[in-house]
Simulated assay, not measured.
Amino acid sequence: MPAPLSDAILFAVASLVDDAQSEDRRDPTHSQIDFIVGRASLTAGDPKAHGQTVGKAKRIRAVLSWALANNRPQGEALVESLISFLRAAGGFRPDSSNYVGTEPIKNAVNAFRAEGFILSSDGELHPLVLDNLTGVQMTEALKRYIRRAQHGNEDAALITGTAKDLLEATAAHVLVERTGLYPTGANFEALLGMAFVAVGMVTAAHPVQPSEPWKCKIERGQFTLALGINGMRNKQGTGHGRPWLPTVTDVQAKNAVRSMANIAEWLLHAHEQTP
């Protein structure tokens, strides 16, 4: 899964490449930033490319801000590249002349954790594994995945540390919260149906009732859409690369990820609102 990008992360990462406050030079240099930004195809958002002279921190902040608004996937790639570069350059090693400092690292750790990622003290960045999370922690972790998926992040369709996709993981969590367990042998349709019913939502199997609430039609549609999305999954490939069948186009995949996130969000919301 690529690194996340948010307002908090762009400020935190920019602080990691801040200009040295002494005569000692700290990598990355502007030339190295040229390469990293160019490789991420984000030159359009680079102040230097537009003739502006700015410090390194302001430059990175500007590029990531532009990416957040215009090209999030490439911005995420840039975040990952910058963290990798800093780790290789000694930015996370206290005895290195390139050490970025305790406070900037702590701020970055907090910013990444808020997006479901762990940044270790030595600069290793990886997604938070969810297998051992329960209760509120699991709910909050799922919400982070949902936010990423709503931006069309294809990798957010898969939940790190489990064999489930986002909808499966959400349904399983809701059932565990409601009943203390969930049937591991149930297929996707049965699992999702039980989760819907547990929080008072209707499925496609529920007959239309006279004068039923408006949300019932939406929930039936969501259930049917969820089954369609599940049919697009590459069941052999889940957890190992692209989660969709080879015949699924990029447009279809992005829409499926966003739809998956919206259904999961509705289900979690119903869980939190229903006694």
Rank of each mutant, 00 (worst) to 15 (best):
I9R: 09
D19W: 09
I60L: 13
F92L: 00
S84C: 01
F85L: 05
T224S: 07
M138L: 11
Q74S: 09
M201T: 00
R25P: 03
S65H: 12
H206E: 03
N98L: 03
P183Q: 04
E154S: 14
R61G: 08
S22M: 02
H240L: 09
H269V: 11
I218A: 10
N71V: 04
V109C: 10
Q21P: 01
S84T: 09
G185C: 03
P246L: 09
G239C: 03
A108E: 04
K254H: 13
T203R: 00
R242W: 07
W244P: 07
R39Q: 10
H30D: 12
G237W: 08
G123M: 01
I105Q: 06
A264M: 12
G200F: 02
Q21C: 12
M201P: 01
H269L: 09
R61T: 04
F92R: 02
D34W: 09
V17N: 12
Q209D: 06
K143G: 05
L130M: 08
V79R: 00
F35V: 13
R148M: 14
S121I: 04
S121M: 12
I146C: 05
P207M: 05
L119D: 01
T43S: 14
T29H: 09
V257S: 15
L142D: 07
Y182G: 01
I146Y: 12
T160W: 07
P94A: 05
T203P: 00
R87N: 00
V79W: 04
L167S: 04
I229A: 10
Q137D: 13
K106L: 14
A89N: 00
S84Y: 00
K164E: 13
V17M: 11
K106F: 11
N255H: 12
D24W: 14
L119T: 01
A67M: 07
S120A: 06
N230F: 07
F11N: 04
A108S: 05
G228N: 12
R39N: 13
K106N: 11
S22C: 05
R61V: 03
K56S: 09
P275W: 05
T170G: 14
A67V: 07
R144P: 03
A57H: 05
W244K: 12
I218D: 15
E124I: 09
A89I: 02
Y145T: 11
R26L: 09
A149G: 06
M194K: 04
H269P: 01
S96K: 15
F92I: 02
Q150H: 10
I159D: 13
D27T: 05
A264W: 07
S31A: 08
A49G: 15
T134F: 08
K106A: 13
S6G: 04
L142C: 11
G237C: 08
K106T: 06
A226M: 08
W214G: 07
F188L: 14
Y182V: 01
S31N: 14
Q252M: 12
K48H: 15
V17H: 04
T203N: 00
R93P: 00
G241N: 12
G123I: 03
A40S: 14
H126E: 05
A172N: 01
N153S: 15
A270T: 08
T238V: 14
F85H: 00
D46M: 14
A198R: 04
D19A: 10
